[in-house]
């Protein structure tokens, strides 16, 4: 593969801190890699681990979770709950044979456009080093193969 691998990353942001940091990065014309696509939530505490699995199984190579710094959550303490879920999910990912490093958590306040930019850029590089996850691609191939072997049996829908 001579061409550089361009990962696709889903980044979950909090409405009060990291999404505003992303706004700030934009207003200040800070540049970061275009590989990251943002999803705005009201709080990192809203982050259902299903969303992460959905992103990874749907074609993303990595997921970046961002929230308010510890002690600065707009909803007092919900970022801690996001952290607990992330820690648990890492163990699940390991069990599934997915490098837990593909899902990263980082704290950024609304004033930290620079920090968000740096975090995104370094995460893109980390995932580039990890290589493609290809969960979705493999799933598609498996489906095709299954249907070729057992043309009568309908392919198993895997939804998360």
């Amino acid at each position: 593969m001579s061409e550089q691998f361009e990962p696709v990353i889903i980044c979950f942001t909090c409405n009060w801190c990291s999404y505003r940091a992303a706004d700030l990065a934009g207003t200040a014309r800070m540049h970061y890699a275009p590989n990251v696509r943002l999803v705005r939530l009201m709080c990192s505490g809203r982050l259902d681990p299903t969303f992460i699995m959905k992103a990874l199984s749907g074609g993303a190579d990595g997921v970046l979770i961002t929230g308010c710094h510890p002690g600065e959550c707009h909803y007092i303490e919900q970022n801690y709950k996001a952290q607990s879920r992330w820690l648990l999910l890492r163990r699940v990912l390991k069990g599934l044979g997915i490098a837990p490093e593909r899902v990263k958590l980082t704290w950024t306040s609304a004033s930290e456009g620079t920090k968000l930019t740096k975090e995104i850029n370094s995460f893109v590089e980390e995932i580039r080093d990890q290589g493609p996850l290809a969960w979705h691609k493999n799933l598609q191939q498996e489906k095709q193969e299954t249907s070729q072997h057992n043309p009568k049996q309908a392919p198993v829908e895997v939804t998360v």
């Binding site: 889903i10 696509r37 969303f51 749907g58 074609g59 598609q140």
Partner: peptide
């Protein structure tokens, strides 16, 4: 949110 994730990744899924 799940629909948004689907949409954000539609180009990848179409390519696969």
């Amino acid at each position: 949110i799940l629909a948004q994730i689907d949409g954000l990744l539609m180009d990848v899924t179409l390519a696969d």
